[in-house]
Computed example of a mutant assay.
Amino acid sequence: MVALLSPTASPARAAHLGPQRRRPLILDAAFEVFIEHGYEGASMAAIARRAGVSKPVVYACFQSKGQLFTELLEREERRILGQIAAALPAEPGADPERTLVEGLTGFLRAVAESPDAYRVIYLAQSDPVAARVQRGRAMQVDAVAALVAAWLGSRGTPEPDRTARLMAHALVGAAEAAARALLVEPDLWDAEEMGQTLAQLIARGQNAV
């Protein structure tokens, strides 16, 4: 989160920038305020103070707190989905447990490296977050289902696409639960150990399919 927590321009300079250059700086400030106070507890005045600008300047860039939060979520969503896509292997591989270890560990490593962004996504309870999480989750399920269907098809499993959808929902749900555990209790696990342990548990269930 270096880019988010170390803005390219200081708050003192933000007031002198044009709207297009102010927007990312205000988003950076809003990110910190939302992390500290949550969506309901954050105010446009607090965001303005953090950005070093007046409240009218914030409203000149974003019409409402909801719009500001939505754009912040879109920015974080693009980055997070890119990390998740990078964690998923391109091919299912001959060893499903190894594929699971690589995918889950890569995802959990991304969570551990950018915990604040994932706290916004996974721990916040506001409606805008929930809607974004559901959309991102559907994309993850589609990607995982494609990999699982290819693996099941190679084994001659009946109705591989149908079974793959069920397994994909279960896998994504397990990964989300692991991410929350990593955020809430970071001292109990590291990403590598959690990814391997979870993959082993899931692989045992897969062998029964």
Rank of each mutant, 00 (worst) to 15 (best):
G156A: 12
T157H: 11
T157D: 07
T157P: 02
T157I: 15
P158C: 11
P158N: 10
P158I: 11
E159C: 06
E159Q: 13
P160Y: 11
P160D: 07
P160W: 14
D161W: 06
T163D: 08
T163K: 14
T163I: 15
A164F: 11
A164Q: 15
R165D: 05
L166A: 14
L166W: 13
L166D: 03
M167C: 14
A168S: 14
A168M: 12
A168D: 09
H169M: 11
H169W: 08
H169K: 12
L171V: 14
V172F: 06
G173N: 09
G173S: 10
G173Q: 09
A174I: 02
A174T: 10
A174P: 00
A174Q: 07
A175E: 04
A175K: 01
A175Q: 15
A175S: 13
E176T: 11
A177D: 10
A177T: 09
A179T: 08
R180L: 09
R180K: 15
R180I: 09
A181F: 06
L182Y: 00
L182F: 01
L183Q: 05
L183W: 06
V184F: 03
V184Q: 10
E185K: 14
E185T: 12
E185W: 12
P186K: 04
D187E: 14
D187G: 02
L188G: 02
L188I: 05
L188E: 00
W189D: 05
W189G: 01
W189F: 15
D190F: 04
D190Q: 05
D190V: 06
D190E: 01
A191E: 13
E192I: 07
E192M: 02
E193I: 08
E193Q: 13
M194E: 00
M194R: 08
G195H: 04
G195K: 04
G195R: 05
Q196N: 03
Q196L: 06
T197C: 00
T197H: 02
T197Q: 09
L198C: 02
L198H: 03
L198G: 02
L198E: 01
A199M: 07
A199I: 08
Q200G: 04
L201A: 13
L201F: 08
